[in-house]
Design a protein around this nucleic acid. Sequence first.
DNA 1: ATGAATATTGCATTCGAAGTCATTCAGGGT
DNA 2: ACCCTGAATGACTTCGAATGCAATATTCAT
Lengths: 349, 349
Amino acid sequence: MVKKKSPNKASSLQEAGAHRARVTSYDVAAHAGVSQSAVSRCFKPGASVSKKMRDRVMKAVQELGYRPNAIARGLITRRSNMVGVVVSNLNFYPEVLSELNKRFIARGVHVLLFSLDQESDVGSILEQMWQYPLDGVIAAAHLAPEQIAMFEERGVPLIFYNRSYQDVPVSSVCCDQTEGERMLVSQLAASSTHKLYGIVAGPKDSVVSMQRTEGAKQRLAELGVTDVQVVPGDYTYESGRRAVSRLVEVCGRVPDAIVCANDMMAMGCMDELRFKHDLDVPGDVSVVGFDGVKAASWASFNLTTVAQPVESMAEAVVTMLLERVDNPEMPPEKRTFSGVLRAGGSIRR
Amino acid sequence: MVKKKSPNKASSLQEAGAHRARVTSYDVAAHAGVSQSAVSRCFKPGASVSKKMRDRVMKAVQELGYRPNAIARGLITRRSNMVGVVVSNLNFYPEVLSELNKRFIARGVHVLLFSLDQESDVGSILEQMWQYPLDGVIAAAHLAPEQIAMFEERGVPLIFYNRSYQDVPVSSVCCDQTEGERMLVSQLAASSTHKLYGIVAGPKDSVVSMQRTEGAKQRLAELGVTDVQVVPGDYTYESGRRAVSRLVEVCGRVPDAIVCANDMMAMGCMDELRFKHDLDVPGDVSVVGFDGVKAASWASFNLTTVAQPVESMAEAVVTMLLERVDNPEMPPEKRTFSGVLRAGGSIRR
DNA sequence: ATGAATATTGCATTCGAAGTCATTCAGGGT
DNA sequence: ACCCTGAATGACTTCGAATGCAATATTCAT
């Protein structure tokens, strides 16, 4: 009749293979001869526990190798201390992921990783995310407005990393793509007089590419250059190589200044120009990129580019997310960082 | 007296801001007018549920936007469907992480990420891991024997990725470093007669570097070359560049064949030789790497290297780990894959 | 020493889903 | 109409830790 609680008596086989059963707070409690609550409190900063109790519990904790189960804790505290990070293609964001993870871990938060092969299956990724009680999510991928709305509905803070949504009230941390591209073009124009400009854009559906490309066109127009050909790429090295041929097709000849929407493609361009067209960069053609990836600074490329302030951006996005986890009422906020012009030697002078 | 269960009645404000309260199986049950058990069963494949019941429940699920809470489920099933992945430095393993994550997700398992800045704080990373009921762990980092033992004690399957421990009964999936390096040296020797060989190793404490370096020395010895200088690096591009100077110091001149413990350093070497020493690669000096990273195949480098079969290795490690999750009694197993020689154009002929 | 105020402690309940077990229901055979 | 069988369903408990509240122990002032 009266329900009998039989907490879990694994303490009997503790010495033998500590194997199998995880040590729980009940095990520790039994071992120390106190209540489970007491054990729990010993792990809660600022809880009311006497020194004697704490010592006793900690001794048992040591002896049994107990660690509080973060998952069980999250169930009741409604704080999983886990955030989701969605990246569209891991290869593009190694440093970013590294920076984010490092910072989250430093604040006791862990990262559950979600990656997209082709951006197509975002839906299924979200389905999976809803199964976890994530405290928040950082997205370095494109989401549809309805998908963004679901986060709002479910009360899960969401922040975009380097993706901006105009007119949509959602938080984001971005690098100022337009401004950066304008700096690059200004630099190009200041160093030498180029006769023909070509632009290698990213995928048509990439907002970032659009902003960078527009920035370049804008600034060129201001400088009086309006006849500019744009060919699309997909952010990869290979597409950068192919882009050169495409530019030749649409321009009739090789441009003497190529603005690429990212560093990877810029390096592809340089290699194609040098090894396929036997041209010199920067002697014959100037090339600029965007992002400031490691390889761009290697001697072989020494690419002039605009570096994203990855550390600042990572710090900002982590801070913003955790702020919103603590205070769900905070309104969306968009933060934009300026890129840093990294003058290399890929511009003719 | 009789305890009154008041399950959670949020169903009242469902229409208004679905906000705040997560939808639980109780909410669905109430909405559909069935028991919570019924809802649970509808999500368990092969459970005994009538079509009528299933339809009714699913309708409520749709209307409320319910998703089972994977965390709560894991608590009782003792299967979190989460695995930990530890990498020593994210920048070194982007493709690997991507491959692993993709494969785990395809099997309904999610990855909790742990990264090390300097391999020093492995201890604290482990402390954090013990807080999660991970089904298993993949480590692409070095662990001390005592640390490895803890996994055994706690019954958490552990598999090393590309780290081997001789004489320690622990599972691992590796690329055959020695064999690969021997292939490279054979290739070097077959293509041209080199007068002076130099080796750029990895950090002294890296087993992988040791194996690669030993493989190279071994094969060189077999070919009658015994006077070989080895200088250490740290796997980065910059250390590859520095290594050239170090080789010059210890050899008295620039070697005409340099074997690097990985591609990054090989590319650093090439750049240093070309841009600092004004030498031609492969005309004056042959350089080989190891790993088969993307950049190595770029036209600027066209590096001859041995590629790790990342996809096969990732598939193997994921399979092995999940096998051991299902069957904890499986004994440790070490799998070694052969690298694939990727002949580029960095060897003199 | 005594009562009030404060600090510790334990009990019972809760988080969300799943498993156990007993009960109920539908269908089939006679 | 009646019994039997297997399927369908619900009540209750469990996983591991945290917490409100009540019970108990200390401390302090008087």
